[in-house]
C-alpha cells in the first residue's frame, strides 16, 4: 500500500507539473501590473487591449483561415489514405504511401519547413506556381503534415471497425461507394471529428513550418506571438494564451464527452 501511495504521489506531481504553468499563465492574464509575474490586483484590461491590437487580430484571422482549410484538406487526404491502407490489402506503392503518411509525424519541423519552402521556390521558377508565398503555401504545408496525423487517428479507428458491417451492406446490394457513405463514414464520424480537430489545433499552433513557407503578406498568430515574446513576457500574450487555451480545451472536452456518449451507445 505504501508503494502504491508513493506511486500515486509521483503521478499526482506529474499532473501538477503539466498544469501549473498553464494555470499561472491564466492567473497572470488577470494581473493589473505590467510586470506580468508580480501581482498588482485583478484586472481584465489586457483582454481589452488585445481587442485593440490590429496586428494580433489580423494574424488570428489568417491563422483561423489556414487552420480551417488545412484541417479539411488533411482530413480528406487522411480518410483516403487510411481507407486504402486498411482495406486494400497489398497494392503497388503501399510501402511508399504508409511511409509518406507516418514520416511527417516524427520529422523535425525545421526540416519539413525548409524543404517545403525550397520546393515552392523551385516550383515557382519552374512552372510559375505557386506565385509568391502566403496563406496558400501555409495551407499546403499544414495539410501535408496534418494528413499524417489524420491518417493515424482514422487508421486506428478503421482498424477496429467491424468489417462485416461493410460486407453486410454490400451483400444487401450496395455498391462499394454506397457502402462507404452509408456505413463506413457514419462509423468513422467520431474519428473524423477528432482528426479534423487535431489538425486544426496543430495548424493553429504551428510556428516553425509556417515561418519558413510564408510570404511577406501573411503572418500567423504564432508568428506574431513569437516575435512579441522574444522581447520578453507580455501581459497581452497571457490574455491571448488564456483565450486560446480555454477555448480549445472547451471544444476538446465537449467533443470527447460527446464521443464517449456515442461510444457507450454503440456497445
Amino acid at each position: 500500500m505504501r508503494r502504491s501511495f508513493s506511486l500515486r504521489m509521483t503521478a499526482f506531481l506529474g499532473f501538477v507539473f503539466l498544469y501549473a504553468p498553464i494555470l499561472s499563465l491564466i492567473i497572470f492574464s488577470f494581473n493589473a501590473s505590467k510586470l506580468v509575474t508580480v501581482w498588482g490586483g485583478f484586472s481584465t484590461k489586457w483582454y481589452a487591449a488585445l481587442l485593440q491590437d490590429q496586428q494580433i487580430l489580423d494574424a488570428a484571422w489568417v491563422s483561423l483561415k489556414v487552420a480551417l482549410m488545412s484541417a479539411t484538406i488533411a482530413t480528406v487526404i487522411g480518410t483516403l489514405a487510411s481507407y486504402a491502407l486498411a482495406r486494400f490489402g497489398r497494392f503497388p506503392a503501399r510501402m511508399m504511401l504508409s511511409g509518406a503518411v507516418t514520416a511527417p509525424l516524427v520529422m523535425p519541423e525545421v526540416i519539413i519547413g525548409l524543404s517545403l519552402l525550397l520546393l515552392f521556390v523551385a516550383l515557382e521558377s519552374l512552372v510559375g506556381w505557386p506565385a509568391g508565398r502566403g496563406v496558400d503555401t501555409i495551407v499546403i504545408a499544414h495539410a501535408t503534415f496534418g494528413a499524417a496525423y489524420a491518417t493515424v487517428v482514422l487508421g486506428s479507428r478503421m482498424g477496429s471497425l467491424d468489417r462485416s458491417i461493410e460486407e453486410a451492406a454490400q451483400d444487401l446490394g450496395a455498391r462499394p461507394i454506397r457502402v462507404f457513405f452509408d456505413v463506413t463514414l457514419p462509423a468513422l464520424a467520431p474519428a473524423l471529428i477528432s482528426a479534423w480537430l487535431l489538425v486544426f489545433t496543430i495548424s493553429l499552433d504551428d510556428l516553425v513550418v509556417a515561418s519558413f513557407v510564408t510570404g511577406p503578406g501573411a503572418s500567423t498568430l504564432p508568428m506574431v506571438i513569437f516575435s512579441k515574446v522574444r522581447l520578453g513576457v507580455s501581459p497581452e500574450v497571457n490574455a491571448l494564451a488564456t483565450l486560446i487555451i480555454v477555448s480549445i480545451s472547451a471544444v476538446i472536452l465537449v467533443a470527447a464527452w460527446q464521443m464517449q456518449k456515442s461510444e457507450a451507445q454503440s456497445h
Binding site: 503539466l18 498544469y19 501549473a20 504553468p21 498553464i22 499561472s24 499563465l25 497572470f28 506580468v36 509575474t37 480537430l197 487535431l198 489545433t201 493553429l204 499552433d205 510556428l207 504564432p222 506571438i225 513569437f226 515574446v229 520578453g232 513576457v233 500574450v237 497571457n238 494564451a241 486560446i244 487555451i245 480549445i248 480545451s249 476538446i252 472536452l253
Partner: peptide, 19 residues
C-alpha cells in the same frame, strides 16, 4: 489536453515562471 492546446504558449508560460 495540454497536448491539444498550444505548444508555443505552454513553452512561453515557463518564461514567466523561470525569469
Amino acid at each position: 489536453l495540454p497536448f491539444w492546446t498550444s505548444f508555443l504558449l505552454r513553452v512561453y508560460a515557463w518564461i514567466g515562471i523561470l525569469k
